[in-house]
């Protein structure tokens, strides 16, 4: 180890705060180096001397003990110290109040919910069961009536559609029958016409007197 490296760490070496390898390296160097030996001796002497210092007591009446906060610690210093805490607490309270007010104004939280709940009558258990049965029966009857109404509507609708379909078919059939009758009549008239020889001659010269 170089002298300058060892010498600059002699205090830490004397305090024993270096790692084991470094302590050993410096120990070896100090044994061979007069300058470091001398410096180390001085350090060791001062450490020893400091440990021999006998603690002196201050003269009686330490006046600074009488210094009270009321005299020397003014309101500004206290405010400066407590302001961050005070500001945080105030902000928290304000946010909470605003949050609660927002819900109250929206009607989500009833303002007198607790009062209404407390004002409800206390019913015996049998009465409560009767109330429940009544509510269920009412609910059942109401649902049955609704279903009946719905069924009637559906039936009426089906009947209406069936009648419409039947009328349509009847109209189609009657129309076809009517068409067939007219066709038969035309064939009859045509046969009568063809039975007459004059009409046959007329039919054989289609280019004369028959419009194209």
């Amino acid at each position: 180890m170089l002298c300058e490296h060892a010498n600059s760490r002699l205090v830490e070496y004397a305090e024993g705060v270096l790692d084991t390898d470094t302590q050993l390296e410096i120990k070896r160097h100090v044994e061979d180096c007069d300058t470091c030996q001398s410096d180390y001796a001085a350090i060791h002497q001062w450490r020893t001397m400091a440990s021999h210092w006998h603690e002196e007591s201050p003269p009686a009446q330490p006046h600074f003990m009488a210094v009270t906060h009321s005299n020397h610690y003014n309101w500004w210093d206290r405010l400066r110290h407590w302001f961050p805490t005070f500001a945080s607490a105030t902000a928290l309270v304000l946010v909470t109040v605003m949050y609660a007010q927002q819900f109250q104004s929206a009607g989500v939280l009833p303002s007198n919910a607790a009062t209404n709940y407390d004002s409800l009558p206390k019913l015996p258990q049998a009465t409560q069961a009767a109330v429940v049965d009544s509510v269920l029966k009412t609910s059942r009857d109401q649902r049955q009536a609704e279903l009946s109404t719905l069924l009637k509507i559906l039936t009426a609708e089906m009947n209406r559609r069936s009648a419409d379909t039947e009328n349509s078919l009847r109209y189609i059939i009657s129309t076809q029958i009517q068409g067939q009758k007219e066709l038969d009549l035309l064939y009859g008239q045509l046969e009568v016409l063809l039975a007459n020889p004059e009409n046959t001659a007329l039919l054989s010269t289609p280019h004369e007197g028959v419009p194209q």
Binding site: P62, F64, V67, Y73, D77, R78, R80
Partner: peptide, 14 residues
Amino acid sequence: LTQEVFMGVHRNLA
């Protein structure tokens, strides 16, 4: 000097 130190500490405690 000790008094001065503690007065200084007191003033700068915050």
